[in-house]
Computed example of a mutant assay.
Amino acid sequence: MQKIKKTIHFILIAMLMMAGGCQPAGVSEIRLKEAEKQLRGLRDAAATVNKNPRTTEKGEIRWITSSYDWTEGFWPGTCWMLFEDTKDPRWKEAAIRAQELFKAHKDLTTDHDLGFIFNNSYGKAFRVTEEEAYKEVLMDAAHALATRFNSNVGCIQSWDVDGGWQSERGWKFPVIIDNLMNLEMLFEASVISGDDRYKSIAVTHANTTMRNHYRPDGSSYHVVDYNPVSGEINARVTAQGFADESAWARGQAWGLYAYTMCYRYTSDRKYLDFAEKIAHFILNHPNYPKDGIPYWDFNAPDIPNEKRDASAAAIIASALVELSSYTGNKYLKDAQHIMNGLSSDSFRALHGQNHNFLLMHSVGSIPHGNEIDVPLNYADYYYIEALIRLKSKGL
């Protein structure tokens, strides 16, 4: 029955496409309604256990149970987006309940992922509700994140290196490309507080990363390790990619999204030009698949038999929709093409399946043997965000 319903859905979309061109007006709204219906099941399950979903493992939902998890902000962020889109108060209730679970983490100074966590949850909460309590949490998190900035390096330190697998690498001050995504919270903190200190840190980090993380072709290293005293580069390596000189797909996606975001907050043309350079690398790479869903690493050794990463595709799609807004819709068809691929039976789960996550076939970290070919909460987050951005354009 589910396959029949989904077949009818694609027939309707095909009819709209014949009537209206490549991408039918309103297809994103249809997909959003289907996604919201699917995620209700995950919402109900989360309410039952009072935990936030991250992925699946051994045929069951893997809930976030650790004291700190870099992905814990994505589920409440998804709930806030669906509340704003549907006005259904149950999504607001779910968002509030979910983000309360990690509110105390706002003051942690031992990790860089506070932007992922708090900008995507409490930041959205403040924008949607304008409640001062949410703004205060966001500002506390921004203050904590800013303590990790080192002016000698010009970056926010990503991982601490006094324990865990990071300590075994011999790193002194590692900065990962993912860290660019945390800058949005700092930009936003300056906007809502009037204190330009946060923006200054974000700009400096973005500029340092642009200078040291990127190759001439627009691809990025995953990790750059610095000397925290001199600011000199110790090494350029990978942690989650195939090799030090390869292009880890989600890392390329983070950079595309982040420099587009940097342009949004600064209007500095160099960020827009750089985002386009990254987009050109991704979209024109010889190993970029026809359906727009990248392999987990652009240089993985066994392409086309390597795992795909739907999370990277969703991030790229959402970024390209925003980038198109600054470039005369130049990248809009590319974003739509990726979303068509993600919304196909190959990547979008049938209703009630996939433990009510939306997307299948994402990759966390193949080198670590972690979360391979599974749904991920951040893949769904950026898929929903991309749909909402397309819907705002009437597509």
Rank of each mutant, 00 (worst) to 15 (best):
Q2C: 05
K6H: 06
K6L: 10
F10R: 15
L16K: 08
A19T: 11
G21Q: 07
S28V: 07
I30H: 12
I30C: 12
K33M: 04
E36N: 09
R40K: 15
G41P: 04
R43H: 11
D44I: 14
K58C: 04
K58H: 07
G59K: 15
R62D: 06
S66C: 09
S66P: 03
E72C: 13
G73N: 12
C79N: 06
F83L: 02
F83Q: 00
W91A: 03
A94N: 07
A95I: 03
A95K: 01
I96S: 02
Q99S: 09
E100G: 06
F102C: 00
L114F: 01
S121H: 01
Y122E: 01
Y122F: 05
G123K: 02
K124M: 13
T129S: 08
E131V: 03
L138Q: 01
D140R: 14
R148L: 07
C155M: 13
S158K: 13
S158G: 04
G163A: 13
R169C: 03
I176C: 02
E184A: 10
F187Y: 07
I192T: 01
D195S: 00
N207G: 04
M210H: 05
N212T: 13
G218N: 08
G231F: 07
A247G: 09
W248K: 02
A249G: 10
Q252L: 07
A253V: 11
G255E: 12
Y257D: 07
Y263F: 12
T266F: 00
R269A: 09
R269H: 05
I278S: 06
F281V: 14
N284W: 02
N287P: 03
K290S: 14
W296T: 10
D297P: 06
P301S: 08
I303N: 15
K307I: 05
R308N: 11
A312H: 08
I315M: 05
A317P: 07
S318Q: 09
S318I: 04
H337C: 07
S343L: 02
N354I: 05
F357D: 05
I366R: 13
P367A: 00
P375W: 03
A379M: 11
D380P: 00
I384P: 10
I384M: 06
E385W: 05
L387R: 11
K393H: 11
